[in-house]
Amino acid sequence: MSGVKRPTEKHLMLFTGRANPELAEEIAALMGVQLTPSRLISYANSEIYVRYEESVRGSDAFVIQSHPANVNEWLMEQLIMVDALKRASAKRITVVAPCYPYARQDKKHLGREPISARLIADLFWAAGADRIMSVDLHTSQIQGFFNGPLDHLSALPVLSAHVAAKYDVSNMTVVSPDAGRVRLADNWCDTLGAPLAIIHKRHDPTIANQVKVHEVVGKVAGRTCLLVDDMIDTAGTVCQAAQALRDHGAERIIIAATHPILSGPAAERLNAFGVEEVIFTNTLPMSADIQINNMTVLSIAPLLAQAIHEIFEDGSVASLFSHGAS
């Protein structure tokens, strides 16, 4: 009939920044779609230019970008990508940030400090994002920083499946490296059916990235100890925690974390300590210069592909949410 508008068919489009295109390519392959061709250029003065080589009008757009160092460059690139989509009349824009940038700056510890994690959410919103998807936020309160939906996915099923298949969990203790990760460790305990131990430590406020380990609370002597965290940066916390476990008679030590930031001396520290295995996901790209003994990197792409599919189909992503992470 003339004059009657037909419903517009939904159209999914995937876009990737330059920080970790391999992850985006794997997601696209799992979903059976192609990444949208894009032109991304860094000019001599470091300004970034973005142009999409296909029409994005009316699309359900997913902008995939990891945020390794230099975090600010890749964050700005993603913001510009979102802005370009908004100005090109994309119908809905979802930011896929597997490792949320500035997540550790989620509160004020001292006067005159920013809450940078909130600022990041505001920037995505101002650029035109309708939704954010991330994995294992440093604290769950970040979910409340964004004005739209923020899908907080959990890498626990990916990591725990590997651990359960490889190790005897009947002799395993899950260890939180500090009080802030107890909820995360408790979720691991529920999944593996293992007991919990906690490393009690205190940060030295005068020295960045330095901690002092005090004591181990829980049974670790003669057991396989699984140290869990959401991220490993310089590896100072986990290595001191591992030393405390060794001092208390742990038989074997495994480290599992979602985000391999791995700044500065991280690889050297982990190699010097000689743990049984270090397990990460690929939410961040692994530099070829980083060589860690006994390291396993598991793909987060199937989880992200499933979540993108559910969002596009207006399905449920509840089963993929973080299990009460703090």
Rank of each mutant, 00 (worst) to 15 (best):
V63N: 02
I64Q: 08
L226H: 06
T16Q: 06
W74H: 15
S322R: 13
G193H: 00
A301S: 08
N45E: 10
A179R: 07
D83S: 13
L153T: 12
S316L: 07
D229T: 11
S319K: 12
A272Q: 07
I64F: 02
N282I: 07
Y167K: 08
V56L: 00
R112S: 07
Q143P: 07
V220N: 08
T173I: 00
V297I: 15
I253C: 02
P302R: 04
G148Q: 12
I198K: 06
N70H: 14
L30W: 01
Q65R: 00
N171S: 15
A257G: 00
G17M: 11
N171T: 13
M172I: 05
I41V: 15
P37R: 05
R269C: 00
A103S: 09
L110Y: 11
A19W: 00
A242L: 02
S134H: 11
S322C: 05
A208F: 14
P101K: 06
I255R: 04
Y49K: 08
F312P: 06
A257H: 00
S134K: 01
N282Y: 05
S322D: 07
A97S: 14
R252C: 09
N293D: 15
L35S: 03
A256I: 14
S287I: 11
L156H: 00
V278M: 05
P177R: 04
V213W: 02
A256N: 05
S66R: 07
V56I: 05
Y100L: 02
R6W: 14
S299I: 07
L85V: 01
T237D: 04
I279G: 01
T191S: 13
A127T: 02
L123C: 08
T206V: 15
A305W: 07
R252P: 03
R39L: 12
G144D: 12
L304Y: 06
Y52E: 03
G324W: 05
I48L: 09
Q143L: 13
E276K: 09
I27R: 03
L137C: 01
S287M: 13
A19R: 05
A221H: 10
L123P: 01
K10M: 14
V158Y: 03
Q210W: 06
A288C: 03
A126P: 01
N147C: 15
S326W: 11
E215R: 15
V297S: 09
R202L: 14
A318W: 13
T94L: 10
D136V: 03
D122F: 13
V158H: 09
E113P: 00
L75C: 04
A235L: 03
L192W: 06
G128A: 01
N271D: 10
V135S: 13
L30C: 06
S140Y: 03
E251T: 03
P260E: 10
L196E: 12
K5S: 10
G58D: 09
I41Q: 07
E25P: 04
L196S: 14
E113Y: 00
W188G: 00
S134M: 04
F124G: 00
C239F: 04
R104E: 07
F15E: 06
E22C: 01
